[in-house]
Simulated assay, not measured.
Amino acid sequence: MKKIGLILIFLFLSIGLFGCQQNNNKKVDNEPSDIEPLDTKAEVIEEDFVYRLVTEKAEYGKNEPIKIYAELEYTGGKEEIEIFHSASPFSFPMVETTRNYEIGYGMDESLSSTKLIKGEPLRAEYRGSGVYDTEDKKEYIHFIRKIMNQEFPKGRYVVNGIADFYVKANEETEQEKKYNIKSQVEFRVKNSN
């Protein structure tokens, strides 16, 4: 009787373990295919401001300069408005999705101001980025150094663009109205070293 019980326990365990096995032959791919279109232009309207983020191409080749720019346009009731921001109201942090690497975007935090004239967009181009710590993995440091030299390795990139600024909502009380407008565009780099 004990033998039959042990055989049944062994049989149930075997069936349970067999049922839990996964098919490791399936390819798991979280990356979009190379033919899937990428969003290269984005526009966000927030109250009296229009924020645009653009990469000029969906796909760049080896050693080709990456062309990304952001625009902020005032559309409100005044002829002009003054905005207050860090060194720039624009930042361009990214994620390289093939390796899942974050590419930071550092900037001088000093307070600056810019006058926006109604209907005339303020434009800034991406000029490179990247931050790493000496304790990061060597592969990541090598990757970020290439980005800092604007030599983008092969991969898929998502730009998480931000327009971060504030305006004086009330001149008398100097009450501030803050804006943190976000959008995304994507591009690929092919045949890169």
Rank of each mutant, 00 (worst) to 15 (best):
V131S: 03
K178Y: 12
A42P: 06
E73G: 09
F12H: 06
I81Q: 02
K115S: 07
E80Y: 08
F143H: 03
V50C: 02
H85Y: 05
E56G: 04
G5S: 14
I144K: 00
I4K: 10
D133K: 09
K177C: 03
T114H: 01
N170A: 06
F165Y: 01
T134A: 06
F84V: 04
I9V: 15
Q184F: 10
T40K: 00
E56K: 15
E80R: 12
T75Q: 13
G106D: 09
I15P: 02
I35S: 13
K41G: 06
I83D: 00
Y101T: 02
Q175E: 15
F90V: 08
I68N: 04
G128D: 10
E80W: 03
M148Y: 00
A87D: 12
P121S: 03
E151T: 04
R52D: 02
L8Y: 04
A70G: 15
Q21H: 07
N170F: 08
S110Q: 14
I181V: 09
P89M: 09
E46W: 00
F49S: 01
Y179A: 11
S91C: 10
I117P: 06
F90Y: 12
L111V: 07
A58R: 02
K182M: 13
A124H: 10
I45N: 08
T40I: 08
K182G: 07
E171H: 05
N63K: 11
V189T: 07
Y51A: 06
G130H: 05
D164V: 04
E43W: 08
K154Y: 02
K118F: 05
K2Q: 14
T173V: 08
E109K: 12
T134E: 08
V158N: 03
D29F: 04
D39N: 09
I181Q: 07
D34I: 07
K177W: 03
Y179F: 15
E56N: 15
E71T: 15
F84P: 00
S192K: 07
